[in-house]
């Protein structure tokens, strides 16, 4: 007979030590914190579009975690690859942008200056550009506005 243990009252968090079965190929997790991920998100979207869409279509077929492990590994490898490329090519810009996000509540609008530098560097070195889907026709995308209304109050 098993008892119900309230996880909130446990002295240590339960962590299942069993590793992944051997028949599943190992993949290194991205292991990045939220700010670098947010900073790289649009480039991940641009660089890994096919893998991401493939994975999401697979998930739509079946919600079982076992069903889409292969596609999931591809997604993770692609994202890790992109982050490595960012760090190799635009280390300074990337670092500046994500630490700016870290200091500004992870909002994009106070960090336009480092973002512009990062976008420029990534476009030159990796050929990826940031596009926000669904921007109204004929309008400047919000990340390229020259004189936005919402911006950092402190200079």
């Amino acid at each position: 007979m098993s008892l119900f243990h309230d996880p909130a009252t446990a002295s240590t968090p339960y962590k299942d030590p069993t590793p992944l079965p051997d028949n599943v190929p190992k993949v290194a997790e991205v292991g990045t914190t939220s700010a670098p991920l947010k900073s790289a998100s649009f480039f991940i979207g641009a660089h890994c579009k096919e893998f991401n869409e493939d994975f999401m279509l697979c998930k739509q077929e079946n919600r079982d975690p076992a069903h889409c492990l292969k596609e999931g590994r591809r997604v993770t490898r692609c994202a890790a690859d992109l982050i490595n490329k960012l760090r190799e090519n635009c280390f300074k810009e990337f670092e500046e942008h994500w630490s700016c996000l870290e200091y500004n509540n992870q909002e994009f609008y106070p960090c336009r200056k480092p973002e512009k530098a990062l976008n420029k560097c990534v476009f030159e070195k990796l050929g990826l550009s940031k596009t926000i889907p669904g921007t109204p026709e004929g309008k400047t995308p919000v990340h390229e506005l020259e004189n936005p209304i919402f911006k950092r109050q402190q200079k």
Binding site: V27, V30, P65, C68, V75
Partner: peptide, 14 residues
């Protein structure tokens, strides 16, 4: 997709 893939691997393992 990235976060779901990572979570799925963990869920599958458990």
């Amino acid at each position: 997709p990235l976060l779901v893939a990572e979570g799925d691997r963990d869920a599958y393992r458990r």
